[in-house]
């Protein structure tokens, strides 16, 4: 266990060192941003739309008679912006992007491409990990913004069209008790999830051993560890920053 901690510490040190070589990671960063961000827009939008719709329906049908209907807008905003927008985007991208990341780097490791880069005096961490880390840090909040917006729009349309809540009620609830910090909280969480996905998946790929089987094992491990890390981070942020969200 201590060896693992030491190895990860060295890995983080290498990443920090890699930031000093922009010529190596900047071009690759754009490619990774496109892969992680632009290519993930459809799945993010689909997931967010369905989550928004389901939240609106569930809240509408679970509230007791007599409760003011604007609670549907309020609950939709709180659940999507504070929790499900960034969390589900993170979990979806863990499967879609994290697994691919581990498999790519792991394959490069087992086919000795990383060794070749070192031989050519390329810093493999600056070339492979730093761009993914930057892309994850930037693109996860970007996708979380889209997820929040699409989720709320979906909740609005389902509430108004299906459950016949008036637009005024929904919008009144949406604005009820709004604080700018709630958006900051959502983006901060998404950023942390992006960093976690990039770090965990890159590291698991970077230390892959034992051929194709090892790549498969590393990929599975990376997805599991990333998902658990995201959930742990989610709980931690709720514990640490939750009191600041109190109305």
């Amino acid at each position: 266990m201590f060896r693992d901690i030491g190895l990860r510490t060295y890995f983080f040190r290498d990443i920090a060192r890699g930031f000093g070589d922009p010529a190596t990671y900047v071009p690759e960063t754009l490619r990774q941003m496109k892969m992680m961000g632009v290519d993930s827009v459809p799945i993010t939008v689909i997931v967010a739309a369905f989550i928004g719709a389901v939240i609106a329906l569930q809240v509408r049908y679970q509230i007791l008679p007599g409760v003011q209907l604007s609670i549907v807008g309020l609950a939709s905003r709180l659940m999507i912006v504070l929790e499900l927008g960034p969390l589900l985007t993170g979990l979806v991208l863990t499967g879609r992007v994290g697994g691919r990341m581990t498999a790519e780097i792991g394959t490069m490791r087992v086919t000795e491409q990383i060794d070749a880069l070192e031989t050519l005096a390329y810093d493999p961490v600056a070339f492979l990990v730093v761009p993914r880390f930057l892309a994850g840090t930037i693109m996860l909040p970007t996708l979380a913004i889209l997820a929040d917006a699409v989720g709320l729009l979906s909740a609005y349309f389902v509430s108004v069209r299906v459950t016949h809540i008036t637009p005024q009620d929904f919008i009144a609830g949406l604005r009820l008790g709004y604080e700018g910090f709630q958006i900051f909280y959502s983006l901060l969480k998404a950023m942390m999830f992006g960093m976690a996905i990039a770090l965990v998946c890159s590291y698991e790929g970077y230390i892959t051993e034992a051929g194709a089987e090892g790549v498969g094992r590393s990929t599975a491990r990376a997805v599991v560890i990333s998902s658990v890390t995201i959930l742990v981070l989610d709980a931690l942020t709720a514990t640490v920053l939750g009191p600041l969200l109190q109305a």
Binding site: M33, K34, I138, L143, I145, L146, I183
Partner: peptide, 29 residues
């Protein structure tokens, strides 16, 4: 590479616009 830059730029711009307009709309009613 140019196509990557354009697509990433479009996504980032759209996200920033949505973020700013959404925050202003929620905060100012």
């Amino acid at each position: 590479r140019r196509r990557n830059e354009v697509s990433v730029g479009i996504l980032m711009t759209a996200a920033v616009i949505v973020l700013i307009l959404g925050m202003v709309w929620l905060a100012r009613g």
